[in-house]
């Protein structure tokens, strides 16, 4: 009894501590995150928004900066490069998304059926190898794989299989119609293992008895997948669609590494245009670049919000 009393006394002391010190202590724990997050994420995004309402050109050092309201946005709506840039990003997204979601789902279902624990681990580890290589290094590797000179893909097509000659061999990254599919394949290669892990985590929650019961009832594998597995993977699928939609619309490293600033290539999207405007073209019209950056972000947010709404109404 005495022990219980001291416990509750201590508990009230702890309550007092938590009431008084909770604010200070807990925000102290959040401080490192907040400093970096506010300083290098939130503030810059807002600062870019502010810039987009001015006529700030970085290299016009002597000219005063004016507040121009929506002038940059009005200009952007008349700028064919902005529209083309958004359309190109959307096109790449449409190519990129299905393979980024469905191939890992199928692979996950296959890996999940592997009963031998050692083999299952080996498959998982191999699939995860690309996710241990940073994105830009993946792009460098695939730039070489697709290369006209040293690429093994064209070596196989030309020298080994003889399907093409050096004259008409496909220019995977130089041909405007081929570059997006080529990049999409590269992205699938990169994302396969990582996304498979998400689906495997979902599959692990499905009890095996469900499958056994279905099999006893005579359901074939396709029906089992469609009626038991797929509905349970849907939440994961929707989250991945939203996340990867965002990734694909705002791709920039791939385009800079593979396509550079060649406007004839579809890789010259709104992100590359923004970079070009802000750090390269003319007198660095950073206010206009800021507007382009925010237009791209808003276009993306609208679709993301639409996706959320679409998926929410279905649940």
């Amino acid at each position: 009894m005495a022990r219980v009393a001291t416990r509750s006394q201590r508990a009230t002391a702890a309550d007092a501590w938590s009431l008084a010190g909770r604010l200070v202590t807990s925000w102290a724990f959040l401080l490192p995150t907040l400093i970096f997050f506010l300083g290098w994420q939130l503030y810059p995004v807002i600062r870019v928004l502010w810039l987009s309402f001015t006529d700030y050109h970085y290299l016009r050092t002597d000219a005063p900066v004016h507040w121009v309201w929506f002038q940059n946005y009005a200009d952007a709506f008349r700028d064919p490069l902005v529209w083309r840039g958004l359309l190109r990003a959307a096109l790449f997204t449409a190519l990129f998304l299905p393979g980024m979601i469905f191939i890992p789902m199928v692979v996950a279902v296959l890996v999940d059926r592997v009963r031998n624990p050692k083999l299952a681990t080996i498959y998982r580890v191999i699939l995860l190898i690309p996710s241990m290589i940073p994105g830009p290094l993946i792009f460098v590797l695939w730039k070489w794989l697709y290369s006209y000179n040293i690429g093994p893909i064209n070596y196989l097509l030309v020298d080994v299989l003889g399907l093409f000659t050096l004259r008409n061999a496909p220019r995977w990254l130089g041909d405007p119609t081929l570059v997006f599919p080529s990049l999409a394949v590269m992205e699938w290669w990169w994302g396969l293992g990582y996304h498979t892990m998400f689906f495997l985590a979902g599959l692990a929650t499905i009890p095996r008895e469900l499958y056994d019961a279905a099999r006893v009832d005579g359901a074939n594998e396709w029906r089992i997948f469609w009626h038991i597995t797929f509905p349970r993977l849907q939440p994961i699928l929707l989250v991945l669609v939203v996340l990867r939609f965002g990734t694909a619309m705002a791709v920039i490293d791939e385009y800079l590494i593979m396509g550079g600033f060649n406007r004839a290539l579809p890789t010259y999207t709104w992100t590359v245009y923004m970079w070009d405007l802000g750090f390269q073209l003319g007198d660095w019209n950073q206010s206009y670049a800021a507007a382009v950056g925010w237009i791209g972000a808003l276009a993306m947010l609208i679709v993301v919000a639409g996706l959320f709404w679409l998926f929410r109404s279905r649940d």
């Binding site: 810059p44 870019v48 996340l243 920039i252 992100t271 802000g278 950056g293 791209g296 947010l301 993301v304």
Partner: peptide
């Protein structure tokens, strides 16, 4: 995480 922060914030 749902905003293209990396791209949009670059200039600032």
């Amino acid at each position: 995480m749902f905003f293209p922060t990396r791209v949009t914030a670059l200039i600032a």
